[in-house]
Design a protein around this nucleic acid. Structure first.
Lengths: 369, 369
DNA sequence: AGCCCTTATTCAAACGTTTGAACCTCTTGA
DNA sequence: TCAAGAGGTTCAAACGTTTGAATAAGGGCT
C-alpha cells in the first residue's frame, strides 16, 4: 500500500513484498547468469509479485550501473521531409534486433534545436549517433565533444569522410545521369533542368551526373533551360520553387519537351505550374524527379523518379554504429567508411516518349511566348 | 590524459582537473541556488575546465538523483502516415519550452512493437505518455502498469475517456458533415461515399456526420454508391483501396458527380482510378478527402479536404501532460478531459460546381456502364 | 570428523549526480 | 574579546540498479 514518494515501484518494493533480498530479486528479474542457481519456486514467486506490483526496472539506475544505455541518438534535420521517414524506419529495424533503442529527435531545420538535441543525446549517454542531414550540421562545435566522449557517429546524406566521419549517401552523380538517360531514351532532346539550391550538398554531384550523361548522349543542355532552386525553407519550398520555375520556363519562350527536376517535390511543383498553364503531363511535357517519396507515388500521374534505397541505407547506418560500438570494446577505431548507395529508376506516368509531345509543346507554347 | 574506462568525462574528472571538490563543481555546473555563494573566479575556472574537457552531465545519474526524467514518451502508431508528423511537431513545440524531451517511438503499426516500446517508455521513467493512435492500442495490459506507476497519459485520435484517459481528437462528425455540405453547395446531388475501414475509430462518426448533413440538405445517399475500405495495411493501403473502389463505382453503372473519400490517400486513389478510366478531375467528377496531408497539397489538382489542426492538437496534448504532471505534484487527479478539435474546410482544385460536370460524367459514364 | 562441492541466498560497493548539513575563515558589531 | 553572520567550500548520504564476493546449509566423499 504505502506508496513510495517517487510513485514508482522499485526492486526494494518487490523484495519487501515477497520476502527476499534486493539482490535475489534483481538477479531473477534481470535474468542474470546467477539466476540458474535460484530455486525455481523462488523465481516464480518473485516474478509473480513483480508482475502484480507492475514493476518495471529503472532504466536510469540500470544504465548507470551497467554503463550502457542501449541507446543510439538519431538526429533528423526535418521529419516533415518525407525523405526522413523511411530512413528512420530503416534505422529502427537495424537497431531493434540488437536491442538498441533509437532516441529520435527532429531538429525541424532549426540549427539551434539541432545543437541542443545533440547535446541532449550526449547527456543521455547514447552509445552512438546517427545524423540524417542534407544541410544542417555544418560546423557544430559539439562535434568535438562527441569525439572527446568517444561516441561513434554516422552521417546519412552527406560525405563527411574528410572529417573522419562514416558517411552514407546516395550516388547522386549516377542518379542524375540515370534520370537524364531515361529522358533521352524516350527521345527527349530539349530538356529543362532544375538544379538544387546551392546550400544543398546533393545539388552539385547530381548536376555533374546530368551533364556527363548529356555529353555521353551527345546532347547539349541549353543554358537558358537550366534553372536553380532558391534556398529552402519549409516543407513545401521545393513545390513552390518548382511551380514558379515552371512558369519561368514557359515565359522564356524556349522550346522544351521534358523537365528534369532536382527532387520530387520540385517535380510536383513543375507539374502544377505546367498544368496551370494548360499543358498536359506527360503528353505535352515529361517530368522526372528524384527521391521517390510518398507524394510521387500517389499523385496522378505518378511521378517518374530516381529511387533512393532509404530503408536500406538506414539499416546499414544502424549496423555501422553498432559495429563501431562493438569495435570500441576491443580498442581503437577502424577505418572511416563511405557508402554510396545505388539509385534506381522508377518509371511512372509523368514521363513518356517525346515524339508527339515535342510538337504539342511547341504549339502550346505560343500562347505563353 | 588518463581516460576513465567509461570513456565519458564525469564531474569527478572536472573536479580533479581544477582542484575543487565534486560538490562545488556540481553546484556551479548545474547552476544550483547555492552557486551564488561560489566565488566568481571559481565559477569561471570550473566552467572553463568543463568546457575544455567536453563535460556533459550524465542524464541517467542526474535523473536518478533528481527523480525527474524531463521526458515524455510519445508513441506514434505509424510515422509513415503523414498524419503523424505534424502532430509530433506540435507535441515537440509544446514540450520544448518546458524543457521536456519527447521520447519518440514509431510502432510501425505492429502491435508487438507498440507494447515493447510502451514498456521501454515506462522503464525510462517518462513522466508522461502521449499516444498517437487511430487503431492500435486496443487493450494493452500495459495500461494497467501505467496507472500503477502513476504516469499521466493522453491519447490523440481516439476517445478513451470511458477508460479514464484524457483524449483529443478531431470532431469527425462535424468534419464529415462539412465535406458533404461542401459538395452539396457546389450543386452535387449524386454523391458516392467511401467509408473508412471498420477497425478505424474515425470511420463511424465521420459517416454519421455525412448522413446527418445529407438529411439536412434533403439528399438521399444512394446505398449502391456507398463503399467501404477494407482493413488497412501499409502506408499506401488507402490509396490502393480508393483506386480499386473507383473502378467499382464506374462498373456499378450508377451515376455520380462527386466522391467523398474517407481520407486524403483514399481520395488520391480515387483520382487515380477515375483518371485511368478517362475521367477528368474535377470537370467530370469532384473528389474530396479528409486530413489535409502533404500529398494533397502537392498533387495536381490539389485535393479539397477537411483539415485537421494537428499541430494545435499536438501542442494541446503536450500542455495537458505537463499540466497533469504539475497537478500530480500537488496530489490526486483532476477530471478526465475530452477535446474535439474543429475541422476546417480547405478548398483546392479537386472539387468544382456540379452543373456541367453532371452532364459530362453522364456522357462519359456510358463508356464504362 | 574433516573436507570440498553444490545450491540458494545475501552483502556491500559502485555507477555519477544532487543537496541538506556541516565546516572553515574572515569580517563586523557590540 | 567574543558572538554572530557571511562568504566559500566540502562531507556524506541518497537515488535504484548490478555484481563479485561472501555466507549458510546441506550432501557426499575420504
Amino acid at each position: 500500500m504505502g506508496q513510495r514518494k517517487s510513485g514508482h515501484v522499485t526492486l526494494h518494493d518487490v523484495a519487501r513484498a515477497c520476502g527476499y533480498s534486493v539482490s535475489t530479486v534483481s538477479i531473477v528479474l534481470s535474468e542474470a547468469p546467477l539466476s540458474q542457481n535460484v530455486a525455481a519456486s523462488t523465481r516464480a514467486r518473485i516474478r509473480e509479485v513483480a508482475r502484480q506490483l507492475g514493476y518495471h526496472p529503472d532504466a536510469f539506475a540500470r544504465s548507470l550501473r551497467r554503463r550502457r544505455s542501449q541507446t543510439i541518438g538519431v538526429l533528423a534535420y526535418d521529419l516533415s521531409d518525407p525523405f526522413c521517414i523511411p530512413t528512420v524506419q530503416g534505422i529502427q529495424s537495424g537497431l531493434h534486433p540488437a536491442n538498441y533503442l533509437p532516441l529520435l529527435m527532429d531538429a525541424q531545420t532549426h540549427r539551434k534545436l539541432f545543437d541542443s538535441y545533440l547535446k541532449m543525446v550526449l547527456e543521455r549517454r547514447a552509445e552512438g549517433v546517427i545524423v540524417i542531414a542534407s544541410w544542417v550540421f555544418e560546423e557544430t562545435n559539439l562535434l568535438a565533444d562527441i569525439e572527446k566522449n568517444h561516441v561513434p557517429i554516422v552521417i546519412l546524406g552527406r560525405d563527411l569522410t574528410s572529417r573522419r566521419i562514416d558517411s552514407l549517401l546516395i550516388d547522386n552523380e549516377a542518379g542524375g545521369a540515370m534520370a537524364l538517360r531515361h529522358l533521352v531514351e524516350l527521345g527527349h532532346r530539349r530538356i529543362a533542368v532544375i538544379r538544387g539550391p546551392e546550400e544543398l550538398f546533393d545539388s552539385e554531384p547530381r548536376w555533374a551526373g546530368i551533364r556527363r550523361a548529356a555529353t555521353e548522349a551527345g546532347i547539349k543542355l541549353d543554358p537558358r533551360l537550366v534553372f536553380q532552386l532558391p534556398g529552402l525553407a519549409g516543407p513545401t519550398a521545393g513545390f513552390e520553387g518548382g511551380r514558379a520555375l515552371a512558369r519561368k520556363m514557359l515565359e522564356s519562350g524556349i522550346r522544351f519537351t521534358a523537365v528534369l527536376a532536382f527532387d520530387d517535390l520540385t517535380a510536383l511543383g513543375v507539374v502544377r505550374g505546367l498544368t496551370d498553364a494548360g499543358l498536359r503531363i506527360p503528353e505535352d511535357c515529361s517530368v522526372i524527379g528524384f527521391d521517390d517519396v510518398l507524394p510521387s507515388v500517389v499523385a496522378t500521374p505518378g511521378i517518374t523518379t530516381v529511387h533512393q534505397p532509404l530503408k536500406e541505407m538506414g539499416l546499414l547506418a544502424a549496423r555501422w554504429v553498432l559495429r563501431a560500438i562493438d569495435a570500441h570494446e576491443g580498442t581503437s577505431s577502424s577505418n572511416i567508411q563511405l557508402h554510396r548507395a545505388s539509385p534506381e529508376l522508377v518509371v511512372r506516368g509523368s514521363t513518356t516518349r517525346a515524339a508527339q509531345s515535342r510538337v504539342r509543346t511547341a504549339s502550346r507554347r505560343k500562347e505563353h511566348a
